[in-house]
Design a binder for these strands. Structure first.
Lengths: 164, 164
DNA sequence: TAGGATCGACAACATGGTTGACGAAAAAAA
DNA sequence: TTTTTTTCGTCAACCATGTTGTCGATCCTA
């Protein structure tokens, strides 16, 4: 009879490359599930990158340069992203009465709806993970990831990172 | 005195969006650490996407169309990627004696070196995680991720997925 | 052996990033 | 208060990486 525990240890020891792929696969499965849900509820054109961009706009609005800083891209690239989000109806431009140079970018009701539904969707997906794994295991998983990637959970500069 | 366990539950319950960000942050921290190491050992120009592409080539070589299928992109896009990898000295083209239509893409010694160092680097990084979290916790983390993202660990079509 | 499928290349185009330059406006210094 | 410096948003040019359509050459098969 095979000692499965030992087999697992051997397999895991020679496959260090599996860990990053598993982390990415978990991220991807959540994002894909969320966007399937969003597509069925009024947001069929939304891409993962748009969600990050809308988070960078935030509930109070932000200047284009500020959005660029939060996303880790140039203000020119942020301007193109805002153009796209504006075309899709997620944000609107407004002059900043306090600063004539600035254009204030604000969420439209459609944009607020996207963020609201996303938050609900993420909560629902986390609840699914908790149902399958158990709340304790999921808490431990999150705690371990906070330990190994401190501060990483609140960075928004994800879009162009992979291809560089 | 504050019941930290309860506080954690409340905080985690209202922050379902943190789970995907933590997964991505973990993936990213590993990939970034690996590429810092690679940059210091003869591979300063390597991007994460190139590693995926070289994995798609594999130790036995592959045709361009096959690489495209493995990466989940068109054969034309795969051809451009191969051009890039060839310029950087990671692969070489050779005619396929068994099929006049095919161009066989093979790893050069430089490409083999990148994959070898990557495998070693991933093993080393996994050992770091095991040292910090404990082997048991890390095994549990990997097992849980295999449960929640079955089959996801062996997909190579990651490059263009995010921006779509 | 004729017809259809596949391979890799070429061209044209879309998207989303970069840098450099610029006028307008605000902030800081003189 | 005037001058200088910084910041904001936009325009233009360019680069990287993906797409679709087309094509000749080659292979497979009915």
């Amino acid at each position: 009879m095979v000692d499965e525990k030992k087999v697992n240890q051997v397999v895991e020891a020679r496959n260090g490359f599996e860990l990053p792929l598993l982390l990415f696969a978990g991220f991807r499965s959540i994002i894909d599930a969320l966007h399937r849900d969003l597509a069925e509820h009024g947001h069929p054109e939304t891409r993962p990158a748009y969600g990050f961009a809308l988070q960078a706009v935030g509930p109070d609005g932000a200047a284009i340069s500020e959005i660029g800083r939060r996303l880790g891209v140039s203000k020119q690239a942020a301007g193109k992203t805002v153009d796209k989000l504006e075309t899709l109806g997620y944000v609107e431009r407004a002059p900043d009465p306090a600063d004539g140079r600035r254009t204030l970018i604000r969420l439209t009701p459609h944009g607020v709806d996207l963020l609201t539904r996303s938050a609900e969707g993420f909560d629902r997906l986390r609840a699914e993970w908790a149902r399958t794994l158990g709340e304790d295991r999921l808490n431990a998983l999150e705690r371990d990831l906070r330990t190994m990637a401190p501060g990483g959970a609140f960075r928004l500069d994800a879009a162009g990172w992979f291809t560089g």
